[in-house]
Design a protein around this nucleic acid. Structure first.
Lengths: 196, 196
DNA sequence: CCAAAAACATACTACTTAGTATGTTTTTGT
DNA sequence: ACAAAAACATACTAAGTAGTATGTTTTTGG
């Protein structure tokens, strides 16, 4: 990788972490360049504005990250009910990067940036769309393979499950303890079983 | 009401609306005193800091509001499954104050303020605790009255339902359309029916 | 009615913010 | 090797921020 590209990526990655912890508004450019050891000139050579950087973070950091940890696991299991439960269990209890006190980065961004920044909303919507589409088609396949009852509405279940995930992340922030996730996971398991 | 109390309440109410729409960080004191027609001297006579005002908003505006629209409806119905569904339907589809593009004020506050402000977290946690306790006991009563199966875990269901609500609020922000709520509500109904 | 306290008004400060102007250094293609 | 472009560095600006200093007006209790 070229050195200039490295600089750019360093900014995006460090800024992403800072924003995940502190929020977008409260993470200043000065803070970003201080922790990355990059000067202001370098920063503004790579990004015209702070929002351009924010968009780049969503598209170049958040999106591939979520694809890897949210989407791929769904495609590797044949039984979608098992896949969904294991995905949630991994995201909530085992993922090393996602911290209970900081919530879900995608959810944080959505909460903080929409509706007042249209571009952010669009970019985040694309990510969500990808996730819901994959989960929906996974469920559909599960119906064909006899894992799930035929009368189950795949899209409804997807939205229901995703909502639960985002919501329990919020709950975790409040309680600041992963134990909060346990009753959610238990009930999720029961709910998923009801779809068999 | 005394005039001074009126001033204080005006500040809290207008600030609450501004924060609901724009977020806490991006709502400045100057903006608040401009829209309330209250001078800076008056503002800082009533509140020592911005955060003191924020806390007052949570305790004096948000808390009673949520009690009225989130908790009381649960206590007026005997069948908890009907009560929960109608509550969600009202909050999502019919409530005039809550707008799809701005989400749920309690959720917004939680997302934006915790964990970096401990006092905010505590105050918000109390509100949530109240809601979950009422919903849990409502479900327990429903078990005794034969509306809900005995083996259902009330606390699990409460957390599951509340998570879904917060999550779908986030979804609504992304889509900026109340229609997003419909598949969630349909699936919620099915889920609740499975508890009978 | 009138002094003391409460309530409000105005002008200011110190600091932070995103962004710019104007450089210098490094890389790159020929 | 060397000019041109890319990449980075430093010092600055203008606008905003929360909060303060120092007043004036209004209310209140005796």
């Amino acid at each position: 990788m070229k050195k200039a590209e490295t600089t750019r990526l360093t900014i995006l990655q460090k800024a992403f972490e800072l924003i995940y912890v502190n929020g977008y508004q409260t993470t200043s450019i000065d803070e970003i360049i201080a922790t990355t050891q990059v000067t202001k000139g370098a920063f503004y050579y790579h990004f015209k504005t702070k929002d351009e950087m924010g968009l780049a973070i969503i598209n170049e950091i958040l999106k591939p990250t979520l694809t890897k940890s949210f989407i791929e696991p769904l495609q590797k299991e044949q039984n979608p009910l098992v896949a969904i439960y294991n995905l949630m269990d991994n995201l909530l209890m085992k993922n090393e990067f996602l911290k209970v006190e900081y919530g879900c980065p995608a959810s944080n961004f959505t909460q903080e940036m929409t509706p007042w920044n249209v571009d952010f909303g669009k970019a985040l919507n694309e990510i969500t769309k990808e996730w819901t589409e994959v989960m929906t088609s996974t469920i559909e396949k599960g119906k064909e393979n006899g894992f799930i009852r035929k009368e189950v509405n795949a899209e409804q279940v997807t939205i229901f499950v995703l909502s639960g995930y985002w919501g329990i992340r919020n709950f975790g922030k409040l309680e600041n303890n992963k134990k909060t996730y346990l009753p959610y996971l238990k009930q999720l398991k029961i709910y998923l079983k009801s779809l068999e």
